[in-house]
Amino acid sequence: MEEPLDLIRLSIDERVYVKCRNDRELRGRLHAYDQHLNMVLSDVEETITTTEEDEETGEEIVSKKTRSVGMLFVRGDIIVLVSPPLRTS
């Protein structure tokens, strides 16, 4: 592997995990990307994690919402991390 983007190129047509800004996570099949990391994913599951503070106890309440999208274009500038599926090589 010569450059980091090679890792993404090797993940075409594979399911990938994408960590985005604002505690959003995506899992889906990668069909396209460019040098900005704009992407098209299919069979996407998005998980949004929100933390609220309980007014009385001050405890942090973590809640996760998920939704499914058939085909999704993701703008690269919100992406923090991409992890390909575990490969046996």
């Binding site: 890792l7 993404i8 995990y17 990391l37 690269g76 991390l81 991409v82 992890s83 390909p84 490969r87």
Partner: peptide, 11 residues
């Protein structure tokens, strides 16, 4: 934990 991971440089 991640086996391989790519981090976008601007972060």
């Amino acid at each position: 934990k991640y086996g391989d991971c790519f981090i976008r440089g601007n972060n």
